[in-house]
C-alpha cells in the first residue's frame, strides 16, 4: 500500500462525501420546490435568486437553534442516535462504482472507493444497520410517541428487507456476481438489467421507499398520530442530522437502483463517445449520466411523496408480507426456470 494510493482514495472519499452532502442539502430545497410545483405554489423564493440559498439559510438556522436534551432521557444514546443514522447513511456510498476508470495526468484512477466481491451484500448490511439510529434515538428520548415510532421503524424495516433481499436474489441469478463493479459493467450500452427484471425492480423500488422511511411509507414519522415520530424530542443540529440522513439515504438508494437496474454509468452510444473523446472525458460523461439517473430517481421519490397519501399501518404490513414477498419469490422461481431453459438449449 503506497502513499499515492492512500491519498488517491482519500481524495475520492472526500469528494464523494462532499457530493452526497451537497446533493442532500439541495434535495431539501428541491423537495420544497417540487411540492410547490405539484401544489401550484411558488415555494421558497426569498433567499437568493429562485431561493437557491435556502438550504444554507436552513443550515444556519439549524446550528443556531437552542440544543435541548431532555433530563429524563439517556444522554449518551440520545447523542449516538442521530450520529449513527448519519454514519449509516454515508458509508453506503463506498462500494458504488461512480464511473469507469478516468485517466487524469497520466494516471488511471478508479472511480470506486473499494470493489469488495460482496458489494451488494455490503449495501444490504448498511441498509439493515440504518434502523439502529432511529431505534436508539427513539428509545433514548424517553417519550412514548418516539418509542412507538422507533418500534414502527424497526418492524417496517425488517419486513421490507426480506422482500428487498428476495428481489435482489433474482437479479443475482442473472448477473452471477455480487460485485457492483461487475454488475454495472455487464450492463454495457443499453443492456440494462431492468429490461430483464422489471418485476424485481418494482419490488426493489417499493422496498427502498419503505427502507428510507419515505412517503407513502413514512409511518415512523406520521405526524397525525405520533407528533414528530422518533425525532419529536430532538432539536438543533441533532434534528438536522436525522433529516439529513433521510435525504442521504434517498441519494444512496437512488444510486443503488440506478447502478443495479438502470445501467449505472452506461448509456446508448457510449462506445462512440469513448473513441472520440478519449479516456479522460468519456468516463466523466458516463459519471454525469449516472448522476442524471440519480437525480431523476430523487425527483421520483419526491413526486410520489406529494402524490400518494400515507398508508395505514396494517396496509403497510399486508403489502409487505402478503404482496411483495410472494411476488418476489415467484420472480425468483420464474427467473430460475427461464435461466435453466436457456442454458439447456
Amino acid at each position: 500500500m503506497d502513499t499515492g494510493f492512500i491519498i488517491e482514495k482519500f481524495i475520492l472519499v472526500a469528494v464523494i462525501f462532499g457530493i452526497s452532502l451537497v446533493i442532500a442539502m439541495y434535495s431539501t430545497y428541491a423537495e420544497r420546490k417540487v411540492a410547490a410545483f405539484l401544489q401550484d405554489r411558488l415555494g421558497p423564493d426569498r433567499a437568493g435568486p429562485f431561493g437557491i440559498l435556502q438550504p444554507l439559510a436552513d443550515g444556519v438556522k439549524m446550528f443556531m437553534k437552542e440544543e435541548i436534551i431532555p433530563t429524563t432521557s439517556n444522554r449518551w444514546l440520545f447523542i449516538v442516535g442521530p450520529g449513527l443514522a448519519l454514519l449509516c447513511a454515508c458509508i453506503g456510498t463506498a462500494v458504488i462504482p461512480w464511473g469507469t476508470p478516468v485517466l487524469i495526468a497520466g494516471k488511471t484512477i478508479s472511480l470506486q472507493v473499494t470493489d469488495i466481491n460482496v458489494g451488494v451484500l455490503y449495501i444490504f448490511g448498511v441498509v439493515s444497520l440504518g434502523v439502529y439510529g432511529v431505534m436508539i434515538g427513539g428509545w433514548a428520548s424517553n417519550n412514548k410517541y418516539s418509542l412507538l415510532s422507533a418500534i414502527r421503524a424497526a418492524s417496517q424495516n425488517i419486513s421490507y428487507e426480506i422482500a428487498m433481499g428476495l428481489s435482489i436474489i433474482a437479479l443475482l441469478l442473472m448477473t452471477n456476481t455480487l460485485s457492483l463493479k461487475e454488475i454495472v459493467a455487464q450492463q454495457h450500452g443499453l443492456n440494462w438489467n431492468v429490461w430483464y427484471q422489471p418485476l424485481g425492480f418494482i419490488i426493489f423500488m417499493v422496498c427502498s421507499f419503505a427502507e428510507t422511511n419515505r412517503a407513502p411509507f413514512d409511518l415512523p414519522e406520521c405526524e397525525t398520530e405520533l407528533i414528530g415520530g422518533y425525532h419529536t424530542e430532538y432539536s438543533s443540529m441533532k434534528l438536522g442530522f436525522y433529516l439529513f440522513a433521510e435525504y442521504i439515504n434517498m441519494f444512496v438508494s437512488s444510486a443503488v437502483m440506478a447502478a443495479l437496474y438502470w445501467g449505472g454509468y452506461n448509456y446508448p452510444g457510449m462506445d462512440y463517445v469513448a473513441t472520440h473523446l478519449g479516456p479522460t472525458w468519456a468516463p466523466l460523461i458516463g459519471t454525469g449520466v449516472f448522476f442524471l439517473k440519480i437525480v431523476l430517481f430523487i425527483f421520483f421519490f419526491m413526486w410520489v411523496r406529494w402524490t400518494i397519501p400515507r398508508f395505514r399501518y396494517d396496509q403497510l404490513m399486508n403489502l409487505g408480507w402478503k404482496g411483495l414477498i410472494p411476488l418476489a419469490i415467484a420472480n425468483i422461481i420464474i427467473t430460475g426456470v427461464v435461466i435453466a431453459i436457456i442454458e439447456k438449449f
Binding site: V127, W139, E161
Partner: peptide
C-alpha cells in the same frame, strides 16, 4: 441487522 433489531 435483523436478529438484534428483533431483540431490541
Amino acid at each position: 441487522g435483523a436478529i438484534m433489531v428483533l431483540f431490541l
